[in-house]
């Protein structure tokens, strides 16, 4: 089967060699750039999931997401690239950093960042990676992306397709974003009023003589918020 596929590849290559000469062993400049940026992205992602310093994980996530934005640019999808920079690098990582600070993540190295089933997780991930890479390479070994000509993902093209063919999902998605916004506010506000009531109860309990002081640490954590 592999021989047949190779023969088909050779036939296809000889048939189209005048039109588009492409080969495995002569990568173009775009491919080399994609490969280098991809290595940086993958390395940053691996450091993100393996580092023991939680804030460093968030900062390496910035590198990984920025690298992905560069990959989108290399694939001529400009609009997605800038949306990626704006939303992921601009807001999601900042939100994650806020979350790390609000949950009082340790600044230095934390010894228990990984759980006990790390090796099982590594086995699952390596198995999945091997299977996926094998299937993907076997499936798309004779497929090339034509990157010449007009960019496939410029703002004009993306906007036209988005507002001609995808208007209804777009509006539904805006409703979903609104719901998520309201939900996040409701979750935080309810917790805040709860914290206020809890602090009042604690204060009342503290003024009473001989009151139990068991919630002191929690009041301390909530006082900083």
């Amino acid at each position: 089967m592999t021989l047949a596929a190779a023969a088909a590849t050779a036939a296809h290559a000889t048939a189209t060699t005048a039109a588009d000469p492409q080969g495995f062993l002569s990568p173009t400049g775009v491919e080399i750039a994609f490969l280098l940026v991809g290595l940086v992205t993958l390395g940053a992602a691996v450091v993100t999931v393996t580092t023991r310093q939680l804030v460093h994980a968030a900062l390496w996530l910035v590198v990984a997401l920025g690298g992905l934005a560069v990959e989108y640019l290399l694939l001529t999808a400009e609009f997605i690239a800038w949306v990626q920079v704006l939303i992921y690098v601009g807001s999601v990582v900042v939100l994650l950093l806020f979350g790390l600070m609000l949950t009082r993540a340790p600044i230095g190295r934390s010894p228990d960042a990984d759980s006990g089933n790390r090796w099982v997780a590594l086995g699952v991930a390596v198995t999945a990676a091997a299977a996926l890479v094998w299937v993907v390479v076997d499936a798309f070994r004779t497929t090339w992306i034509d990157l010449d000509g007009a960019p496939a993902g410029s703002t004009e093209v993306t906007g036209a397709s988005l507002f001609q063919h995808w208007v209804l999902p777009f509006e539904a998605l805006s409703v979903l974003l609104l719901a998520a916004l309201v939900g996040a506010i409701v979750l935080s506000r309810k917790a805040k009023t709860e914290a206020g009531a809890d602090a009042e109860a604690e204060r009342a309990a503290a003024t009473a003589p001989g009151a139990p002081r068991s919630g002191a640490t929690r009041r301390e954590t909530e006082g900083t918020r």
């Binding site: 992205t41 993958l42 992602a45 691996v46 993100t48 999931v49 939680l54 990984a64 992905l68 993540a105 934390s110 228990d112 960042a113 990984d114 759980s115 089933n117 790390r118 099982v120 997780a121 590594l122 699952v124 991930a125 390596v126 999945a128 990676a129 996926l132």
Partner: peptide, 14 residues
């Protein structure tokens, strides 16, 4: 990248 994220989801504790 997907498998890296998979490892992180399974192995991280925070």
């Amino acid at each position: 990248l997907f498998c890296t994220g998979l490892y992180g989801v399974l192995a991280r504790r925070n």
